[in-house]
Amino acid sequence: HNGKLCKLKGIAPLQLGKCNITGWLLGNPECDSLLPARSWSYIVETPNSENGACYPGDLIDYEELREQLSSVSSLERFEIFPKESSWPNHTFNGVTVSCSHRGKSSFYRNLLWLTKKGDSYPKLTNSYVNNKGKEVLVLWGVHHPSSSDEQQSLYSNGNAYVSVASSNYNRRFTPEIAARPKVRDQHGRMNYYWTLLEPGDTIIFEATGNLIAPWYAFALSRGFESGIITSNASMHECNTKCQTPQGAINSNLPFQNIHPVTIGECPKYVRSTKLRMVTGLRNIPSIQYRGLFGAIAGFIEGGWTGMIDGWYGYHHQNEQGSGYAADQKSTQNAINGITNKVNSVIEKMNTQFTAVGKEFNNLEKRMENLNKKVDDGFLDIWTYNAELLVLLENERTLDFHDLNVKNLYEKVKSQLKNNAKEIGNGCFEFYHKCDNECMESVRNGTYDYPKYSEESKLNREKIDGVKLESMGVYQILAIYSTVASSLVLLVSLGAISFWMCSNGSLQCRICI
């Protein structure tokens, strides 16, 4: 991952900044910058967002509201009850120091605090018919004063009620008058409520006091790749198909172990950190130390980045220098085999997901714990399936590479015959000098055995068991695999060879 928040398929997220979902939807004055928000790819909250409900109280069923919003990608904020005409018999300019803005008392931008007009609070009834052709999110509140005197001074009615009804919602609220500790300079409380109004449905408000009335509502448009994440990451000019709280993932790998919460087309989250597919040879310690064997393909974004291909070729060293050249036929066979294998694994496992966190309130801790156990169970199954699949494929890959290298080895052996000696570690020792032209003939299969047989015969008789390297004779190393990324691999195959001279070296080696 890149540690950044990015656009998702070209669409920017909605960053709530210092506000949370509650503050944004109710219209906390400190969240005025969010009022123009219309569309987004996903919503970003920060872990310690401080601006929620400015007048103390709870947004009821907040967790369910977050779940609903996680599939919303755009909205239209509109005046559901026009301020100047909807409440002619009531005062609608209630403000509070708890919702101060720029040093002055204020109130929510989407709600109206209705109080008595003169000395009376006549029963009010108002309704709205949803003609938007889509779901409408309606929010309101109920004020709970701290004393009967406060109730009387604001609403005149000691036994007030609030009723809200639609086809799918029907509740009646009565204020709970009680002494409470002071929070944000208030002994009173406000509880906030919401409902989704279906197209064509009607919502009716009736009250004799204590109503925090809707002013603006939201017509919602769903987008199934949307979601809500909690993150401290910063926004950058970048684009992605998959976003996590820790950063964007741009990967076609089937798995990731970065974060379980994802938005967009994302690899499946697994616990494993070692889900690797081999593309090189079986481990040979001396070669492995030099980083030549054991190439791997990573299938977990965050564990290993991208696929690494092994390729086969020849390396030689003689009086004229040293050089490398790919054996294109065996390399292409290996590439085709690995590509098919990788595609097979991805096809089997690479279903892209959006995974969002589930919200539970403080009273639902047991449910949250149960949900976590269920999620953990599914996660263990996914991890096991992934590891088992790759384990089985790896064994076949190792066998496949062994065969490829063996074929190259036999190709060289059949040409050199007794003009060189096998020394048991995949290397041959020449009994004759071999210049670049000679080396090329070994690589392309045109090695002239009779041409060098007499010199080889004489050297075999002279050496008589002495280690060949100390006599200045020449080696050919018969097994060799270097490691390159897919891009470098293609470039390498396009070149005939490249040279690395070893000044004054008397050794001649050709490596497979």
Rank of each mutant, 00 (worst) to 15 (best):
S234G: 14
C501D: 00
G472R: 08
I300L: 14
R509S: 13
G504H: 12
Q328V: 14
Y312N: 05
I263Y: 04
H401P: 06
G494P: 02
K372M: 07
N385P: 03
N336H: 04
E359S: 11
L408N: 07
T331M: 07
Q243M: 10
G306D: 08
Y409M: 10
Y474P: 08
W311N: 06
G323N: 13
N350T: 13
D464L: 13
E364F: 08
L392S: 08
I346Q: 05
C501S: 10
N371D: 10
I463E: 08
N232G: 12
V278Q: 11
E237G: 13
I258A: 01
S486F: 05
N252T: 08
L379A: 06
G472E: 09
Y452N: 10
D402K: 10
N459H: 09
N340G: 05
L408K: 06
G280C: 08
E359C: 09
G313A: 00
L416I: 15
K433R: 13
A334N: 08
N333Q: 07
S502Y: 15
G291D: 07
Q246L: 12
M277V: 00
H432G: 05
C427N: 05
I335A: 05
V473R: 09
T354A: 07
I512C: 09
S330H: 01
Y289I: 09
A355K: 11
V405P: 05
I479M: 12
A478F: 03
E422Y: 03
Y324H: 04
E319W: 01
D327P: 02
N371H: 09
K274P: 00
E364T: 06
A295F: 05
D327W: 03
Q243R: 06
D375N: 14
K457I: 12
C438N: 08
G472W: 00
F360A: 06
K373W: 06
I496F: 11
K329M: 11
K462G: 14
A420M: 07
C434G: 08
L388Q: 13
V412A: 13
S414V: 14
N340P: 01
F299Q: 04
F293C: 03
T331R: 06
M500N: 10
S441G: 05
S251T: 13
L489T: 14
I346A: 02
V412K: 06
R271E: 06
V342A: 03
E461D: 04
N283E: 10
H432V: 14
Q507N: 06
C438A: 05
G294T: 15
V342Q: 12
R276Y: 12
R509Q: 15
V473C: 07
N350R: 14
